[in-house]
């Protein structure tokens, strides 16, 4: 931990489904609920659109944490998408664990379109956790560093 220089800013990629979580993030914005600027959101139609490859790619390119947000179970716009996402992520997280990536660096959270405060709280909590963990070096491909 001491090695981390003062300028270290964690990089967090958040995948948000268009119907619930992205709208929840919008609500967090319109409610002026702040969360760290190093959280960057990618909009996907459904949490089930997130290919585990995207998450591996993020880690390879130096992301320190990846979070996937979808509709609450039973509320998926596409009926069952978030269940698929949950199963896939369970498998992926097991594999990441095996690879030595800390469990806390990845997360699946359900955030509805009405939960702006929850979105902000989740992001704050996740960012704080990643800050604690520090830089992710395990999967990072140094060739990708400029």
């Amino acid at each position: 931990m001491q090695e981390i220089n003062e300028k270290y800013e964690p990089l967090i990629v958040a995948f948000c489904c268009n119907w619930c979580s992205y709208a929840g993030a919008d609500l967090a914005g319109s409610s002026r609920l702040s969360y760290p600027a190093n959280v960057k959101i990618i909009r996907v139609p459904c949490s089930c659109r997130v290919n585990p490859m995207f998450i591996l790619k993020a880690f390879q390119r130096g992301a320190d944490g990846v979070i996937l947000c979808g509709c609450h179970p039973g509320d998926c716009h596409y009926t069952t998408g978030n269940y698929y996402a949950r199963r896939r992520m369970t498998m992926l997280f097991d594999m990441l664990d095996y690879l030595g990536i800390e469990r806390e660096r990845t997360r699946v959270e359900w955030v509805s379109a009405a939960e702006g405060n929850r979105f902000a709280a989740v992001m704050n909590d996740f960012a704080a956790k990643i800050n604690e963990l520090g830089e992710n070096k395990r999967l990072e491909d140094l060739r990708c560093k400029n």
Partner: peptide, 10 residues
Amino acid sequence: IMAEVESICK
């Protein structure tokens, strides 16, 4: 989406 991930992580 890969391009988005790469862009954010740059």
